[in-house]
Write a protein that binds this DNA or RNA. Sequence first.
DNA 1: GGATCGCCTTGAATGACATTCAACAGACAA
DNA 2: TTGTCTGTTGAATGTCATTCAAGGCGATCC
Lengths: 177, 177
Amino acid sequence: MAQTKRDQDRAEKRDEIIAAARTLFIETGYEDTSISRLAAAAGVAPNTIYWYFKDKDEVLVAVLDAEFSDGMAEYLQLPVTDAAERLFWVVQRLERVSRLVSTVHSRLEASEAINLWHERFHTISEGILRVSLQHAGLSSDRIETRTKISVFTMEGLLAHPMSEADKRIICRELVTA
Amino acid sequence: MAQTKRDQDRAEKRDEIIAAARTLFIETGYEDTSISRLAAAAGVAPNTIYWYFKDKDEVLVAVLDAEFSDGMAEYLQLPVTDAAERLFWVVQRLERVSRLVSTVHSRLEASEAINLWHERFHTISEGILRVSLQHAGLSSDRIETRTKISVFTMEGLLAHPMSEADKRIICRELVTA
DNA sequence: GGATCGCCTTGAATGACATTCAACAGACAA
DNA sequence: TTGTCTGTTGAATGTCATTCAAGGCGATCC
Protein backbone atom coordinates (compact mmCIF):
# COMPACT_ATOMS: atom_id res chain seq x y z
CA MET A 1 0.00 0.00 0.00
CA ALA A 2 3.04 2.20 0.21
CA GLN A 3 2.99 2.54 -3.53
CA THR A 4 -0.62 3.60 -3.27
CA LYS A 5 0.27 6.34 -0.80
CA ARG A 6 2.88 7.58 -3.28
CA ASP A 7 0.32 7.48 -6.06
CA GLN A 8 -2.10 9.46 -3.94
CA ASP A 9 0.46 12.16 -3.18
CA ARG A 10 1.25 12.31 -6.84
CA ALA A 11 -2.43 12.63 -7.75
CA GLU A 12 -2.92 15.35 -5.16
CA LYS A 13 -0.02 17.42 -6.43
CA ARG A 14 -1.26 16.94 -9.97
CA ASP A 15 -4.68 18.15 -8.90
CA GLU A 16 -3.17 21.23 -7.30
CA ILE A 17 -1.49 22.10 -10.57
CA ILE A 18 -4.75 21.50 -12.45
CA ALA A 19 -6.64 23.71 -9.99
CA ALA A 20 -4.15 26.54 -10.46
CA ALA A 21 -4.22 26.09 -14.22
CA ARG A 22 -7.99 26.07 -14.24
CA THR A 23 -8.21 29.51 -12.69
CA LEU A 24 -5.39 30.97 -14.73
CA PHE A 25 -6.43 29.53 -18.10
CA ILE A 26 -10.02 30.68 -17.66
CA GLU A 27 -9.27 34.11 -16.26
CA THR A 28 -6.03 35.02 -17.99
CA GLY A 29 -6.21 32.78 -21.02
CA TYR A 30 -4.10 29.83 -22.10
CA GLU A 31 -1.62 31.72 -24.27
CA ASP A 32 -1.16 34.44 -21.68
CA THR A 33 -0.48 31.98 -18.89
CA SER A 34 3.16 31.01 -19.06
CA ILE A 35 4.44 27.83 -17.48
CA SER A 36 6.37 30.06 -15.09
CA ARG A 37 3.24 31.81 -13.92
CA LEU A 38 1.39 28.55 -13.59
CA ALA A 39 4.27 27.05 -11.62
CA ALA A 40 4.38 30.07 -9.31
CA ALA A 41 0.63 29.78 -8.69
CA ALA A 42 1.01 26.09 -7.92
CA GLY A 43 4.03 26.74 -5.70
CA VAL A 44 6.61 24.78 -7.67
CA ALA A 45 9.49 25.39 -10.06
CA PRO A 46 8.54 25.77 -13.72
CA ASN A 47 10.11 22.53 -14.83
CA THR A 48 8.33 20.58 -12.12
CA ILE A 49 5.19 20.90 -14.24
CA TYR A 50 6.87 18.57 -16.72
CA TRP A 51 7.17 15.85 -14.15
CA TYR A 52 3.38 15.68 -13.99
CA PHE A 53 2.45 16.60 -17.56
CA LYS A 54 4.01 15.87 -20.93
CA ASP A 55 3.55 19.44 -22.09
CA LYS A 56 1.36 22.51 -21.71
CA ASP A 57 -1.37 21.07 -23.93
CA GLU A 58 -1.71 18.11 -21.60
CA VAL A 59 -2.33 20.51 -18.72
CA LEU A 60 -5.04 22.09 -20.83
CA VAL A 61 -6.65 18.71 -21.49
CA ALA A 62 -6.72 18.03 -17.75
CA VAL A 63 -8.37 21.39 -17.15
CA LEU A 64 -10.90 20.69 -19.89
CA ASP A 65 -11.73 17.32 -18.38
CA ALA A 66 -12.32 18.86 -14.97
CA GLU A 67 -14.41 21.68 -16.38
CA PHE A 68 -16.45 19.37 -18.63
CA SER A 69 -17.15 16.95 -15.84
CA ASP A 70 -18.43 19.74 -13.58
CA GLY A 71 -20.54 21.26 -16.34
CA MET A 72 -22.06 17.93 -17.23
CA ALA A 73 -22.99 17.27 -13.60
CA GLU A 74 -24.77 20.63 -13.45
CA TYR A 75 -26.55 19.97 -16.74
CA LEU A 76 -27.87 16.62 -15.59
CA GLN A 77 -29.44 18.26 -12.54
CA LEU A 78 -31.20 21.01 -14.51
CA PRO A 79 -34.82 21.35 -13.45
CA VAL A 80 -35.70 23.03 -16.76
CA THR A 81 -37.40 20.80 -19.31
CA ASP A 82 -37.99 23.22 -22.17
CA ALA A 83 -35.50 22.39 -24.93
CA ALA A 84 -34.80 26.00 -25.90
CA GLU A 85 -34.16 26.97 -22.29
CA ARG A 86 -31.80 24.05 -21.82
CA LEU A 87 -29.87 25.14 -24.90
CA PHE A 88 -29.73 28.67 -23.56
CA TRP A 89 -28.48 27.41 -20.22
CA VAL A 90 -25.65 25.53 -21.94
CA VAL A 91 -24.62 28.61 -23.89
CA GLN A 92 -24.55 30.71 -20.72
CA ARG A 93 -22.62 28.02 -18.88
CA LEU A 94 -20.07 27.68 -21.67
CA GLU A 95 -19.65 31.43 -21.84
CA ARG A 96 -17.79 31.30 -18.55
CA VAL A 97 -15.12 29.28 -20.30
CA SER A 98 -15.38 30.86 -23.71
CA ARG A 99 -11.65 31.54 -23.66
CA LEU A 100 -11.02 27.83 -23.41
CA VAL A 101 -13.42 27.14 -26.26
CA SER A 102 -11.55 29.40 -28.60
CA THR A 103 -8.19 28.09 -27.40
CA VAL A 104 -9.24 24.52 -28.12
CA HIS A 105 -10.23 25.43 -31.66
CA SER A 106 -7.02 27.30 -32.28
CA ARG A 107 -4.87 24.40 -31.05
CA LEU A 108 -6.61 21.57 -32.91
CA GLU A 109 -3.93 21.43 -35.57
CA ALA A 110 -0.96 21.85 -33.27
CA SER A 111 -1.87 19.30 -30.63
CA GLU A 112 -3.08 15.76 -31.16
CA ALA A 113 -4.18 15.56 -27.52
CA ILE A 114 -6.42 18.60 -27.89
CA ASN A 115 -7.74 17.25 -31.16
CA LEU A 116 -8.78 13.99 -29.53
CA TRP A 117 -10.43 15.78 -26.63
CA HIS A 118 -12.32 18.02 -29.05
CA GLU A 119 -13.64 15.09 -31.07
CA ARG A 120 -14.81 13.33 -27.95
CA PHE A 121 -16.48 16.51 -26.73
CA HIS A 122 -18.35 16.94 -30.00
CA THR A 123 -19.49 13.34 -30.06
CA ILE A 124 -20.92 13.58 -26.56
CA SER A 125 -22.46 17.04 -27.07
CA GLU A 126 -24.06 16.10 -30.35
CA GLY A 127 -25.51 13.00 -28.76
CA ILE A 128 -27.15 15.02 -26.02
CA LEU A 129 -28.36 17.66 -28.44
CA ARG A 130 -29.86 15.01 -30.71
CA VAL A 131 -31.99 13.75 -27.86
CA SER A 132 -33.05 17.30 -27.04
CA LEU A 133 -34.13 17.93 -30.61
CA GLN A 134 -36.02 14.65 -30.85
CA HIS A 135 -37.75 15.58 -27.64
CA ALA A 136 -38.67 18.94 -29.16
CA GLY A 137 -40.49 17.07 -31.92
CA LEU A 138 -38.26 17.59 -34.99
CA SER A 139 -38.90 15.28 -37.92
CA SER A 140 -36.35 12.48 -37.77
CA ASP A 141 -34.93 12.99 -41.25
CA ARG A 142 -33.75 16.47 -40.31
CA ILE A 143 -32.42 15.67 -36.86
CA GLU A 144 -28.84 15.07 -37.97
CA THR A 145 -28.61 18.27 -39.93
CA ARG A 146 -30.28 20.35 -37.26
CA THR A 147 -28.01 18.85 -34.62
CA LYS A 148 -24.94 20.04 -36.47
CA ILE A 149 -26.41 23.45 -37.15
CA SER A 150 -27.23 23.79 -33.47
CA VAL A 151 -23.76 22.82 -32.30
CA PHE A 152 -22.11 25.24 -34.70
CA THR A 153 -24.50 28.01 -33.78
CA MET A 154 -23.78 27.53 -30.12
CA GLU A 155 -20.07 27.73 -30.80
CA GLY A 156 -20.73 30.92 -32.72
CA LEU A 157 -22.71 32.37 -29.84
CA LEU A 158 -19.72 31.79 -27.58
CA ALA A 159 -17.22 33.43 -29.92
CA HIS A 160 -19.36 36.45 -30.77
CA PRO A 161 -20.82 38.45 -27.89
CA MET A 162 -24.52 39.18 -28.04
CA SER A 163 -27.38 40.25 -25.79
CA GLU A 164 -29.07 37.59 -23.69
CA ALA A 165 -32.35 38.31 -25.43
CA ASP A 166 -30.87 37.66 -28.87
CA LYS A 167 -29.26 34.47 -27.64
CA ARG A 168 -32.61 33.28 -26.32
CA ILE A 169 -34.32 33.97 -29.63
CA ILE A 170 -31.65 32.04 -31.49
CA CYS A 171 -31.88 29.07 -29.13
CA ARG A 172 -35.64 29.10 -29.60
CA GLU A 173 -35.28 29.08 -33.39
CA LEU A 174 -32.85 26.15 -33.24
CA VAL A 175 -35.42 23.85 -31.66
CA THR A 176 -38.34 25.04 -33.79
CA ALA A 177 -39.57 22.48 -36.31
CA MET B 1 6.00 63.74 -58.37
CA ALA B 2 9.18 62.42 -56.84
CA GLN B 3 7.29 61.79 -53.65
CA THR B 4 4.75 59.79 -55.62
CA LYS B 5 7.46 57.61 -57.17
CA ARG B 6 8.78 56.96 -53.68
CA ASP B 7 5.32 56.06 -52.48
CA GLN B 8 4.87 53.70 -55.39
CA ASP B 9 8.12 51.88 -54.65
CA ARG B 10 7.07 51.60 -51.06
CA ALA B 11 3.66 50.21 -52.03
CA GLU B 12 5.27 47.69 -54.37
CA LYS B 13 7.63 46.39 -51.73
CA ARG B 14 4.78 46.21 -49.27
CA ASP B 15 2.76 44.22 -51.77
CA GLU B 16 5.64 41.79 -52.24
CA ILE B 17 5.70 41.14 -48.52
CA ILE B 18 1.93 40.69 -48.49
CA ALA B 19 2.14 38.26 -51.41
CA ALA B 20 4.75 36.18 -49.61
CA ALA B 21 2.76 36.31 -46.38
CA ARG B 22 -0.41 35.30 -48.18
CA THR B 23 1.11 32.06 -49.42
CA LEU B 24 2.87 31.26 -46.16
CA PHE B 25 -0.01 32.10 -43.82
CA ILE B 26 -2.47 30.06 -45.87
CA GLU B 27 -0.24 27.07 -46.50
CA THR B 28 1.86 26.95 -43.35
CA GLY B 29 -0.37 28.83 -40.95
CA TYR B 30 0.09 32.15 -39.20
CA GLU B 31 1.60 30.83 -35.97
CA ASP B 32 3.98 28.53 -37.82
CA THR B 33 5.22 31.29 -40.11
CA SER B 34 7.92 33.19 -38.26
CA ILE B 35 8.87 36.71 -39.22
CA SER B 36 12.24 35.27 -40.24
CA ARG B 37 10.66 32.82 -42.67
CA LEU B 38 8.41 35.50 -44.06
CA ALA B 39 11.34 37.87 -44.49
CA ALA B 40 13.37 35.17 -46.25
CA ALA B 41 10.46 34.49 -48.62
CA ALA B 42 10.16 38.21 -49.36
CA GLY B 43 13.92 38.55 -49.80
CA VAL B 44 14.58 40.98 -46.96
CA ALA B 45 16.00 40.98 -43.45
CA PRO B 46 13.53 40.07 -40.67
CA ASN B 47 13.43 43.53 -39.16
CA THR B 48 12.74 45.14 -42.52
CA ILE B 49 9.18 43.81 -42.17
CA TYR B 50 8.77 46.31 -39.35
CA TRP B 51 9.53 49.19 -41.63
CA TYR B 52 6.37 48.38 -43.59
CA PHE B 53 4.13 46.96 -40.87
CA LYS B 54 3.62 47.83 -37.23
CA ASP B 55 3.63 44.18 -36.19
CA LYS B 56 2.83 40.67 -37.37
CA ASP B 57 -0.91 41.16 -36.85
CA GLU B 58 -0.87 44.08 -39.25
CA VAL B 59 0.66 41.83 -41.90
CA LEU B 60 -2.20 39.43 -41.27
CA VAL B 61 -4.77 42.18 -41.69
CA ALA B 62 -3.21 43.11 -45.04
CA VAL B 63 -3.38 39.46 -46.14
CA LEU B 64 -7.00 39.24 -45.02
CA ASP B 65 -7.89 42.37 -46.98
CA ALA B 66 -6.30 40.97 -50.14
CA GLU B 67 -7.97 37.60 -49.73
CA PHE B 68 -11.37 39.09 -48.93
CA SER B 69 -11.27 41.43 -51.87
CA ASP B 70 -10.47 38.57 -54.26
CA GLY B 71 -13.14 36.34 -52.78
CA MET B 72 -15.76 39.04 -52.99
CA ALA B 73 -14.95 39.69 -56.64
CA GLU B 74 -15.42 35.99 -57.39
CA TYR B 75 -18.67 35.89 -55.44
CA LEU B 76 -20.15 38.82 -57.33
CA GLN B 77 -19.53 37.06 -60.62
CA LEU B 78 -21.15 33.79 -59.58
CA PRO B 79 -23.56 32.53 -62.26
CA VAL B 80 -25.40 30.40 -59.67
CA THR B 81 -28.68 31.89 -58.45
CA ASP B 82 -29.88 29.19 -56.06
CA ALA B 83 -29.38 30.49 -52.51
CA ALA B 84 -28.28 27.15 -51.06
CA GLU B 85 -25.72 26.66 -53.81
CA ARG B 86 -24.36 30.14 -53.29
CA LEU B 87 -23.95 29.41 -49.60
CA PHE B 88 -22.22 26.16 -50.42
CA TRP B 89 -19.89 27.97 -52.81
CA VAL B 90 -18.91 30.42 -50.08
CA VAL B 91 -18.15 27.60 -47.67
CA GLN B 92 -15.97 25.84 -50.23
CA ARG B 93 -14.22 29.08 -51.07
CA LEU B 94 -13.55 29.91 -47.45
CA GLU B 95 -12.28 26.42 -46.81
CA ARG B 96 -9.18 27.29 -48.79
CA VAL B 97 -8.36 29.82 -46.12
CA SER B 98 -9.80 27.97 -43.15
CA ARG B 99 -6.49 28.34 -41.35
CA LEU B 100 -6.86 32.10 -41.51
CA VAL B 101 -10.42 31.90 -40.25
CA SER B 102 -9.38 30.07 -37.12
CA THR B 103 -6.36 32.32 -36.64
CA VAL B 104 -8.56 35.42 -36.77
CA HIS B 105 -10.84 34.01 -34.11
CA SER B 106 -7.97 33.05 -31.88
CA ARG B 107 -6.38 36.50 -32.12
CA LEU B 108 -9.50 38.60 -31.54
CA GLU B 109 -8.58 39.27 -27.93
CA ALA B 110 -4.89 39.83 -28.47
CA SER B 111 -5.06 42.23 -31.39
CA GLU B 112 -7.29 45.25 -31.75
CA ALA B 113 -6.50 45.43 -35.48
CA ILE B 114 -7.71 41.87 -36.04
CA ASN B 115 -10.75 42.56 -33.91
CA LEU B 116 -11.72 45.52 -36.06
CA TRP B 117 -11.22 43.57 -39.27
CA HIS B 118 -13.33 40.74 -37.93
CA GLU B 119 -16.22 43.04 -37.02
CA ARG B 120 -16.15 44.63 -40.43
CA PHE B 121 -16.10 41.23 -42.08
CA HIS B 122 -19.12 40.06 -40.10
CA THR B 123 -21.09 43.20 -40.88
CA ILE B 124 -20.50 42.82 -44.59
CA SER B 125 -21.06 39.05 -44.65
CA GLU B 126 -24.26 39.26 -42.64
CA GLY B 127 -25.53 41.95 -44.97
CA ILE B 128 -25.01 39.78 -48.02
CA LEU B 129 -26.46 36.73 -46.31
CA ARG B 130 -29.54 38.68 -45.26
CA VAL B 131 -30.26 39.50 -48.87
CA SER B 132 -29.76 35.87 -49.85
CA LEU B 133 -32.21 34.70 -47.22
CA GLN B 134 -34.80 37.30 -48.17
CA HIS B 135 -34.42 36.16 -51.77
CA ALA B 136 -35.00 32.59 -50.63
CA GLY B 137 -38.34 33.67 -49.23
CA LEU B 138 -37.86 33.57 -45.47
CA SER B 139 -40.45 35.37 -43.40
CA SER B 140 -39.05 38.77 -42.50
CA ASP B 141 -39.43 38.42 -38.72
CA ARG B 142 -37.04 35.47 -38.70
CA ILE B 143 -34.48 36.87 -41.11
CA GLU B 144 -32.23 38.36 -38.43
CA THR B 145 -32.10 35.21 -36.39
CA ARG B 146 -31.60 32.96 -39.37
CA THR B 147 -28.86 35.21 -40.67
CA LYS B 148 -26.89 34.78 -37.48
CA ILE B 149 -27.49 31.06 -37.35
CA SER B 150 -26.30 30.79 -40.93
CA VAL B 151 -23.12 32.76 -40.33
CA PHE B 152 -22.24 30.72 -37.25
CA THR B 153 -23.03 27.47 -39.02
CA MET B 154 -20.78 28.40 -41.90
CA GLU B 155 -17.98 29.17 -39.48
CA GLY B 156 -18.57 25.79 -37.88
CA LEU B 157 -18.42 24.07 -41.26
CA LEU B 158 -15.01 25.62 -41.80
CA ALA B 159 -13.61 24.56 -38.46
CA HIS B 160 -14.98 21.02 -38.50
CA PRO B 161 -14.21 18.91 -41.60
CA MET B 162 -17.17 17.22 -43.20
CA SER B 163 -18.13 15.55 -46.49
CA GLU B 164 -19.25 17.79 -49.35
CA ALA B 165 -22.62 16.06 -49.36
CA ASP B 166 -23.24 16.84 -45.70
CA LYS B 167 -22.20 20.42 -46.21
CA ARG B 168 -24.66 20.74 -49.10
CA ILE B 169 -27.49 19.36 -46.99
CA ILE B 170 -26.70 21.81 -44.21
CA CYS B 171 -26.57 24.77 -46.59
CA ARG B 172 -29.92 23.67 -48.01
CA GLU B 173 -31.45 23.50 -44.54
CA LEU B 174 -30.18 26.98 -43.72
CA VAL B 175 -32.18 28.61 -46.51
CA THR B 176 -35.30 26.49 -45.98
CA ALA B 177 -38.24 28.43 -44.59
C1' DG C 1 21.60 1.90 11.47
C1' DG C 2 23.64 2.54 7.32
C1' DA C 3 23.69 1.83 2.23
C1' DT C 4 20.84 1.91 -1.82
C1' DC C 5 17.21 2.88 -4.98
C1' DG C 6 13.84 5.51 -7.27
C1' DC C 7 10.66 9.34 -7.02
C1' DC C 8 10.65 14.15 -7.09
C1' DT C 9 12.57 18.87 -7.46
C1' DT C 10 15.30 22.28 -9.28
C1' DG C 11 18.96 25.82 -11.39
C1' DA C 12 20.68 26.39 -15.40
C1' DA C 13 20.77 25.66 -20.15
C1' DT C 14 18.72 25.61 -25.18
C1' DG C 15 16.67 27.22 -29.11
C1' DA C 16 12.84 29.69 -31.08
C1' DC C 17 10.23 33.65 -31.28
C1' DA C 18 8.51 38.83 -31.96
C1' DT C 19 10.22 43.01 -31.52
C1' DT C 20 13.65 46.99 -30.84
C1' DC C 21 17.97 49.54 -31.30
C1' DA C 22 21.79 51.78 -33.27
C1' DA C 23 24.45 52.18 -37.16
C1' DC C 24 24.81 52.78 -41.85
C1' DA C 25 23.84 53.38 -47.16
C1' DG C 26 21.98 55.87 -50.81
C1' DA C 27 18.95 59.45 -53.02
C1' DC C 28 17.65 64.00 -53.13
C1' DA C 29 17.79 69.19 -51.68
C1' DA C 30 20.22 73.37 -50.32
C1' DT D 1 29.64 69.57 -50.27
C1' DT D 2 26.79 69.08 -46.54
C1' DG D 3 22.84 67.46 -44.48
C1' DT D 4 18.41 65.17 -44.25
C1' DC D 5 15.13 61.64 -45.12
C1' DT D 6 13.97 56.83 -46.55
C1' DG D 7 15.30 52.14 -46.22
C1' DT D 8 18.10 48.34 -44.66
C1' DT D 9 20.44 45.59 -41.60
C1' DG D 10 23.30 42.88 -37.75
C1' DA D 11 23.06 42.49 -33.36
C1' DA D 12 20.70 42.90 -29.22
C1' DT D 13 16.54 42.07 -25.72
C1' DG D 14 13.29 39.72 -23.30
C1' DT D 15 9.99 36.01 -23.27
C1' DC D 16 8.54 31.59 -24.05
C1' DA D 17 8.15 26.15 -23.82
C1' DT D 18 10.93 22.60 -23.07
C1' DT D 19 15.20 19.75 -21.73
C1' DC D 20 19.32 18.40 -19.06
C1' DA D 21 22.18 17.17 -15.36
C1' DA D 22 22.61 17.23 -10.58
C1' DG D 23 21.08 16.48 -6.39
C1' DG D 24 17.63 15.80 -2.13
C1' DC D 25 14.75 12.82 0.42
C1' DG D 26 11.78 9.01 1.88
C1' DA D 27 11.14 4.22 1.67
C1' DT D 28 13.27 -0.32 1.37
C1' DC D 29 16.73 -3.78 2.15
C1' DC D 30 20.71 -5.81 4.67
